[in-house]
Design a binder for these strands. Structure first.
Lengths: 130, 130
DNA sequence: GTGCATTGAATGCACATGCATGTAGTCTCC
DNA sequence: GGAGACTACATGCATGTGCATTCAATGCAC
């Protein structure tokens, strides 16, 4: 495969941007209307659900989450504060490194995520196919 | 082609999001450091350059620009105000519809865009190939 | 152990964004 | 031509974001 030309690059970038913008916008709107969640909030909940092993509530560090949702450390800190205020997650001191903060889902958080998954998937299906 | 499964959709979305975030972030940083432009600012300048026919400075309406940069009308209005303050574009009243505002490049705006193009393309080449 | 650099997270601040609204110009129907 | 709906853009306001800074805890050198 030869190197793409500049116009090809620009076209690819615009397409990528357009898809991302449209999808993110739709996702944000639907999740907000139907479940009171922003897109990034949902992503964080989802990571926590995925990180859960067995019954033990997921406990991830703030920093681990930051990279996977493409947010700065400070933005994530506040996002988690919002989720905590809403009763969806809990922050607790990390036992082995007391600088760290473990974030874990509450039952309410798990429920909210479960409720929102169908919305999330259906928006993706609609925007990402075709 | 069969309908994608949910995990496929989610994976596709995450990939899209990751590429977009990484590229946008790199683009913003480089353009800002080297040319004092944000990503969207550059996009607007680029649309104006593209819209130019012959010598006649491009004059696009605010609304036309908004859709192509995935910004709300209000955000774009302010973005143009910033560009105008920086001397890169000029707003003038649209003669045939006096509600409308024609945005046109100044020579300085054209130069700034020309300077920034190599940076833009090289970031795209780096982030979007592979 | 003490001092110092480093790391994890929270916070002050500036700024860009979106929504709702305001304002001016245009169009339509009578 | 005049009233009212509509359109294009600007602006007030609330919010989310990133950068720089701060504070606490850890690790390392000695």
């Amino acid at each position: 495969m030869s190197a793409p030309t500049d116009p090809e690059l620009v076209e690819a970038w615009r397409t990528l941007l357009a898809r991302q913008a449209a999808t993110a916008c739709a996702l944000d709107r639907e999740l907000n209307e139907r479940h009171g969640l922003g897109m990034s909030e949902f992503e964080v909940l989802e990571r926590l659900v995925e990180g859960t092993s067995g019954d033990c509530a997921a406990s991830l560090r703030v920093q681990e989450l930051a990279t996977s949702v493409h947010l700065s450390q400070s933005a994530l800190s506040r996002l988690i504060a919002r989720l905590e205020k809403a009763g969806l997650v809990e922050r607790s001191m990390c036992p082995e490194d007391r600088r760290g903060v473990s974030v874990c889902l509450t039952p309410a958080g798990r429920d909210r995520h479960t409720d929102a998954v169908p919305t999330h998937r259906s928006v993706l299906a609609e925007m990402l196919t075709g």
